[in-house]
Design a protein around this nucleic acid. Sequence first.
RNA 1: GUGGCUGUAGCUCAGUUGGUUAGAGCACUAGAUUGUGAUUCUAGGGGUCGCGGGUUCGAGUCCCGUCAGCCACCCCA
Length: 446
Amino acid sequence: MIEPRTLKGFRDLLPAQALAREKILDIARRIYRSYGFAPIDTPALEYLEILTGKGSAETDKQLYSFTDHGDRRVGMRFDLTVPFARFAAQHIATLGTPFKRYHMATVWRGENTQRGRYREFMQCDFDTIGTTSPVADLETVLVVHDLLVAIGIKRFTIRVNDRRILGGVLRSAGLAERSTDVLRSLDKLGKQSLDAVVDEMAGHGVPADVARRLVAMAALAGPPAEVLAAVEPLVGDDAVGREGIAAVRTLLDGVAQAGVAEGRVVVDPSIARGLDYYTGIVLESFLDELPTLGSICSGGRYDDLAGLYTKQRLPGVGASLGIDRLLAGLEELGRLATAETPAEVFLVHFDAAHLGDYLRIAAALRADGMTVEFFPEARRLGQQLKLAAKKGFRVALVIGTDEFARGTAQLKNLATEATTTIAWEGDLAALVDAVHSHLEAIRSDH
RNA sequence: GUGGCUGUAGCUCAGUUGGUUAGAGCACUAGAUUGUGAUUCUAGGGGUCGCGGGUUCGAGUCCCGUCAGCCACCCCA
């Protein structure tokens, strides 16, 4: 016998989890579309050279790659951005710019696992390419905001920064060549103490007083305008750095004008993002109740998406929702729906002699748009009800021999155990209406 | 990839300094109850103690390896 098992970092999803994931995918799809992003898809497998050029040495190491049956070196995509770059280089001529797309798909990374970190997981990307307009930056933040709100997350924070600000600060401090190391150290601020980070920078050859100032800047918190004002002197006369500050100001103004609640979007000078292709605004978002989970939705602006694959310059901005990490977080917080069924109505199979009636009733309920499961066997009533409650149906519809004789039906709210009697006198439409309105009432209670 | 912690029934766990056929609660199945999700009672199914090897008269318990999970580094969703 072969032991049934799954690979490290790869998981099965049971109905409750798959239902939760699909629900969020539906929401993401709806929000992305509401801003005009169009869906695309790309292959899971690409020529290895497409994938290896772009990422750092780190992502190359994490890449799943092999030789296929035709002796081609191929790799599985580790994010959706690189395939999109290839896609854009190949198709931008027919698509035209600006081009807005979303892409929700599985990616693979052969790295070590941890809470909310898997080797196979889904990303929900959206990007706008072919424009440098600040409006596109603004929309990116608004989409992330709308998305998290629509998912039903009450407490979250979107942290924004601009790569140009960091660059300007480093240039003004004479640390331009050390920037990668310094940014990497700064990025650890959430997890390590200020002193530890200062020490680490000293190890990279940064004078202690400069390191201290950088760390103090990165640790700034409070109203965005104040944070920006505090950062400004550190940028000094660096023109690019000042552009970054102006860009963040513009962004925050837009966010406010769009009606986003205060405090939802903050400036965090320590946000750098690991991927080196970001050149403008960068953003990360966190669950306030679970900050250690890491960013659940991040992105930023890049100068040139597809420089490796085409001469046409394609600047853009976008972000990615890490749906599996988010689900891990919501599960830990006990916010995940527990229903194991997508159907709302459980039709009890009571009297096998009335099979035809049950089928007719189920069909009528479905034709009205309701989701209905008809139990396949005429098992004990108690057993059927218990099963229906456990699986998370909203209501159970009980029509037995007596009910058929009297032209009635029992509708049970499985959460409250309340029973209502419906008089339908053999009039299917009346039964459908009654069930429909009860369901509406139950849904609005939620 | 490196280091640390953990691994007993579907779930939560107990299991004395190594000592007979490995337990509990919940869950599950059947019945008491030929039409109502609960309660109670009765009976029942389920475990190669993650897996493999070693030490020992004897290993769930000690040692090594391995797989998986969690945590840290690294990186990120």
